[in-house]
């Protein structure tokens, strides 16, 4: 376990060093977050007077939590696959495969910095949103931390499956993009799931994002306790964790074995 954490730390620092050589992109990311929040603020003024989404302030708070958590989870799901693909295309994957590193440590290393970045960006986004109306509630910070950690673990495990696709068939980022888009649509990122047509409700029910968003909104906007959340939405997320972690880990290990047997680690 310590070795895995060490590998993850090493790769996160490596990605940070490389990211720091592209400083402008970080600044531009903050601008994007600011303009995004501003857009959602004005949208909330337009649509936020209905029984479904409540007052403009309530809808703005709903959307801020949805977008920031959605971005964190998108990073957790997508980056193992996209960074595996980068290493594959850039030529570093083959040499990484000769190192004494477990597949899980490598995949976590691929995701570590993007997830940390997304959390920090989320925090900055929320700060930007405060003067726009993201205030007037009392979060249960322990619940917030618990939801964030459990959700990230679940979505990282789902991301392992994307990385497995990349290793096995040299593609997978597109598949993960479709999965993330579907979860975002059905999970209630920027609108309540109740407005979805009946035929799409099954997607809402099976999407883990639905429950993580409910849990996070409960923790953040309504100050719900960990006990309450664990007996409701967060409990469902834990069931997803029990399925996704072994499934993701086994799939990733199998894909490495498959890629070694086919010689795909040297291909792109």
């Amino acid at each position: 376990m310590m070795r895995t954490f060490e590998i993850v730390r090493i790769f996160a620092l490596k990605d940070l060093r490389i990211a720091l050589t592209y400083r402008l992109s970080f600044v531009l990311g903050l601008f994007t977050a600011f303009y995004g929040m501003l857009s959602f603020f004005f949208i909330s003024r337009v649509v936020g007077h209905s029984a479904t989404v409540g007052t403009p302030e309530e809808y703005f708070q709903f959307i801020v939590v949805g977008v920031t958590l959605g971005n964190v989870l998108r990073a957790a799901v997508m980056t193992a696959a996209s960074n595996a693909r980068s290493d594959q295309l850039e030529g570093t994957l083959e040499i990484l495969a000769t190192q004494p590193i477990s597949p899980v440590a490598l995949a976590l290393g691929w995701s570590a910095l993007p997830v940390i970045e997304a959390i920090l960006e989320g925090a900055v986004t929320m700060l930007i949103a405060v003067p726009l109306g993201f205030s007037g509630f009392t979060p249960d910070w322990l619940s917030v931390a618990l939801v964030l950690i459990i959700s990230i673990v679940v979505f990282l495990a789902i991301g392992f499956i994307g990385a497995a696709f990349v290793l096995a068939i040299q593609q997978g980022t597109g598949v993960m993009g479709v999965i993330v888009a579907t979860m975002s649509l059905a999970g209630g990122t920027i609108f309540p799931t109740s407005v979805l047509p009946e035929s799409l409700h099954f997607l809402t029910v099976i999407s883990p994002l639905t429950y993580t968003l409910r849990a996070m909104r409960g923790a953040m906007l309504e100050g719900q306790s960990p006990e309450h959340l664990l007996s409701t939405s967060l409990g469902v997320v834990l069931i997803y964790a029990a399925i996704a972690i072994p499934l993701g880990t086994i799939t990733l290990s199998m894909s490495f074995r498959f890629a070694r047997s086919r010689g795909y680690l040297s291909r792109f």
Partner: peptide
Amino acid sequence: IGAAFVNERSLYWRL
């Protein structure tokens, strides 16, 4: 093992 293949792209170029 220590392996070295013919592939200069196996290094991280922005490090």
